[in-house]
């Protein structure tokens, strides 16, 4: 697992495509078959996965996309919170980070 840096490209792993999700209130209860774990994701974390559903993107793009998609209904997001969520998804094996020069 490579730690996500600010200018990395970020993409979903195959494990992320198998997850099962159910929305309760403003939270998402996620089942991850590859680890057999159940997670609770907030909207920010779920939006990161939504952002990457169709293609990989840079970390900056993900942060901007998520900020814009949530800011309409919520208070402004702290970019550090989004970066933390990206890092956590990486640790769970749901996203991969690639150094851009390797692409």
């Amino acid at each position: 697992m490579l730690e996500c840096k600010q200018h990395d490209l970020v993409g979903l792993t195959s494990e992320a495509r198998d997850i099962v999700s159910h929305e309760f209130d403003d939270f998402y209860i996620i089942y991850q078959p590859s680890s057999t774990e159940t997670h609770v994701f907030n909207e920010t974390t779920t939006e990161i996965l939504n952002c990457l559903a169709h293609s990989s993107a840079s970390s900056e793009y993900v942060m901007k996309w998520v900020s814009e998609s949530i800011v309409s209904t919520e208070n402004e997001l702290d970019p550090l919170d989004i970066a933390d969520a990206i890092q956590r998804l990486n640790e769970l094996g749901l996203i991969d980070c690639f150094e851009r020069e390797n692409q």
Binding site: V20, F24, D25, F27, I29, Y31, P33, T36, T38, V40
Partner: peptide, 25 residues
Amino acid sequence: IPKSQAFLMVATNSFNYDVLDQTSY
């Protein structure tokens, strides 16, 4: 209480949630 909270309280109160994997979920 919110259903998300209820989910967590039920799952963590289970004897074998982890054993049954996705069936438990």
